[in-house]
Design a protein around this nucleic acid. Structure first.
Lengths: 141, 141
DNA sequence: GTACTATTTGCAACTTATTTGCAAGTACAA
DNA sequence: TTGTACTTGCAAATAAGTTGCAAATAGTAC
């Protein structure tokens, strides 16, 4: 049974399956943790993909919902594949930048609670949740 | 009964009470929603505070815990006073940038849950949680 | 009040992150 | 195979944040 290819994934979002886009997808698949635009560009450099194309590709993937933007408070945007990562969050070491994942933010209850408190909002499309702290090795120093 | 002044607040964090710092504090107090460094700089421009000083001040306030950095996925950092804002979060309109607040992320339970799932972390110092969606006026368009 | 000193500020210049305009290249429907 | 709308690459621009250093100043000691 054939798995849906990345090309099909792109076409499902009405995007052409181009070399740069497939390269960016592949890079994101290979990496376990969120990547900055710079990280992605480095990974696709061998395929001669321009930095600007990387930015544009990540932006369009974000709009399409293929990637999720992650905020790590480092002054630049990070991205990871959305696929199979609903309720997927990060805990970040403020000392050495180590990242680990966790789940269980109780999204539905949270949204319900938030919408009950606000007066001007009626729907939530996505969310962002990160914890910051010290990893065990760093806290021993 | 005298309220603790901003100057005392600064000294409590071992920082000198300088004009630029007091101006930044005052600007943050006057504004209900998170401000970018640029917003703050604009607000303190009349006091002749340099942009660089604004950046440095916000950074030192953040380190001291006086302000909290907020991520609104707009490509720059936002700040708000930490004071009396524990468990304080935002819901942001992706169309018009309206921001409203909400509380109730159940922080302690969340941290406990996250630390149970991770292998390399032992403590959490702060967190970041934002919801993104459409405000009612925008969703009617 | 005056002097002292470590801290803080302002300015200029720099680095890093991201965006824009446009001509040339390419995926894919016909 | 061709046509065309969508994409890409390059150069250049803009935006966000940082650094070095000399001048200014808050807080302490007299």
């Amino acid at each position: 049974m054939p798995t849906t290819s990345d090309a099909d994934l792109l076409r499902a979002h009405e995007m052409r399956a181009t070399t740069p886009r497939l390269a960016v997808l592949s890079a994101l698949r290979k990496t376990k943790y969120p990547m900055s635009a710079h990280d992605v560009a480095k990974a696709v450099r061998t395929k001669k993909v321009d930095m600007v194309t990387t930015y544009r590709t990540l932006e369009s993937f974000k709009t399409a919902g293929i990637v999720t933007q992650v905020e790590l408070q480092r002054g630049r945007a990070y991205y990871e594949l959305s696929e199979g990562r609903k309720d997927h969050h990060h805990i970040v070491c403020i000392n050495c930048d180590t990242v680990e994942d966790f789940t269980g933010c109780d999204y539905d209850a949270l949204v319900k609670k938030a919408l009950r408190q606000t007066v001007g909002f009626s729907s939530v499309t996505h969310h962002s949740l990160e914890l910051f702290g010290m990893c065990t090795p760093c806290s021993k120093k």
